[in-house]
Structure formats: structure tokens, C-alpha cells
Simulated assay, not measured.
Amino acid sequence: MQEIVLFIVGVAISAFGVTVGFGGGVFLVPVLMLFFGYNIEIAVGSSMAAMVPAALIGSFFNSRNHSIDYVVSTLIQLPAMAGTVLGAFLVAFLPVQELQMVFALFVIVVGIVMLLPHTQKKPPRHSGLMYQIRDIPTTFIRKNKTNHLAYRLNAGVVSVFGFLSGTIAGLFGIGGGFLQTPIMIKLFRIPAQVATSTSLFILVVTSFTGFISHFLIGNVLWSRSLPVVLSFAVGSLLGSLFKKENHPGYNMEKLIAIGLLLAGVGVLLNLMLKSNTGFSF
């Protein structure tokens, strides 16, 4: 019976995570520990293993829909890898738990603000930050093949953002998907469907790297990880089909806001669970 419940929960988390571009790992770890008796090492290893097929399946569908911006993903992913190394190094010098709590509360506040009704009209797409710095070198225009919406980007700014998101991920031991998606939408004015698809594509590399690391140190026990892996694969398929049939826009941004709230709560739960177990990841 527990395996059935775990499968259903995993499908729901994965479907939601793929839809909003977060992946779902930040939601899964505390759920596995609190409700299914996983210790934190195995919970993290199972989460990393589950994210690999979920990110691959989601990215396959997104690639067929031409909604992945490979240029943006490269500009974010490569600096993020360097930032992750720096963040892991800074763990020894900064009050990580206190900073993580502040960060989680900040994410929750951002989610609440995004959920609140806005009386003002939506600002025009050409009023974003990228259009204000259009004269700076390495600024260029991208155009999505699916909805033909154009958006302006600056390679330097996007790379700095990728480095910062990687640093936060390495410092706090969390994925950067729930940071990347809303910033791509709100700051860079990237269409919601492109932002969620690009964020999920970035997770292909990060989740595989994390899976290999945890597999080598023995945190992936297939007897406990396989049900989660299968559920995340099914959830990713369902989430990808849902995303394909629904036009991105207002509702997508509301889903992302809910995801931020859940992610913030998940970070707080991870923080409490890590402090109780003494395990850091």
C-alpha cells in the first residue's frame, strides 16, 4: 500500500515540477523523509536518480515543441557549474543555516507577491531590463519558433545570473530551477513556456551529475529509489502533455508562484531535517 501511495505522490510532484520548470527535487526530499521513512542520504540520492528520467522526458517533449532556448541554457549552465563549486567552498566560511532560512522566507514572500491580484496593467514586453541595456555589448535578440515572441538578452547579464544561481545551489545544497524560471520570466521577459522548458533542460545536466555523485557514495539504493524513479518518469510524461495542451500565460505564472511557495516551505523543511540528522548535501 505504501508503494502505491509513494508512486501517486511521486507522479503528482513530478508532473507539477515539470510543468513549472522546477523539476520537483526540492519538494520530494522532505516528503520522502517525513511520510515514507527515508533517511536524508537515501532521500537525496533517490531524488537525484528520479530527476534524470524526468528531465530527459520533459526536455524531449519540449524539444519537439521548439520551446527550449539552447543559447540561454548554455549561458546559464556553464557559469552555474562554476558557481556551484564556489558555493560548496563558501559553506565552510558562511552561516549557511541562517542564510538558508532567510533565502527560504524570501522565496515564500516572492511567491505570495506573485499570487496577489494586480490592478495595474501588465507592462509591455519591451519595457524589461534587457531592453534598457540594449546598447551594452553582447546584447542580442532571441525569437521563439513556437509563438514567435521576441525577447532581448544580454549574454553577460544572463551568465552572471547563472553564476549566482549556481552559487546559491552549491551553498544551500538545493536545485536552482525554482530560481531560474521566475527570473527568466520576470526579469528577462522570456515567454513562460520557453523559460520553464529551458530551466528543465538545464536540469538534465545537473540532475545527472548529482545522480552519479550520490550513486558513487552509496546513496542510491535501487530497492528504495526505483519506485520514485518510475513515478517521476510517469509524472514527467503527464506534465509534458499538460503543458503541451495549455497555452502559457497568466495561469502558468500562478502555477510558478505556487511552486515558489512550496519550494520555500521545502527548503525550510530540508533545513530542519538536516539540522536534526546532521547530514549536509
Rank of each mutant, 00 (worst) to 15 (best):
E98S: 10
E98L: 11
L99T: 06
Q100N: 11
M101G: 00
V102H: 09
L105G: 12
F106E: 04
V107D: 00
I108D: 03
V109N: 02
V110L: 15
G111W: 00
G111T: 04
I112R: 12
I112H: 07
I112F: 15
M114N: 13
P117T: 11
T119P: 00
T119Y: 07
T119N: 09
T119G: 13
Q120G: 14
K122Q: 13
K122Y: 10
P123I: 00
R125C: 01
R125F: 01
H126L: 02
S127A: 07
S127F: 06
S127M: 11
G128V: 02
L129S: 02
M130R: 02
Q132M: 14
D135M: 05
I136T: 11
I136W: 13
F140A: 09
F140E: 10
I141C: 07
K143R: 15
K145M: 08
T146Y: 11
A150L: 06
A150E: 15
R152Q: 15
L153D: 04
L153K: 03
L153C: 14
L153S: 10
N154F: 12
N154Q: 13
N154I: 12
G156E: 09
V157S: 06
V158A: 10
V158D: 01
S159P: 06
V160Y: 09
V160W: 07
V160C: 12
F161Q: 03
F161M: 12
G162I: 06
L164P: 01
G166P: 05
G166R: 05
G166C: 05
T167M: 15
I168P: 02
I168W: 04
A169Y: 06
F172V: 01
F172K: 09
G173F: 12
G173N: 11
G173T: 09
I174H: 07
G176Y: 14
G177N: 05
F178V: 08
F178E: 12
Q180R: 13
P182E: 05
M184N: 04
K186M: 06
K186E: 01
K186A: 06
F188Y: 03
R189H: 15
I190N: 04
I190E: 03
A192T: 09
Q193W: 00
Q193I: 05
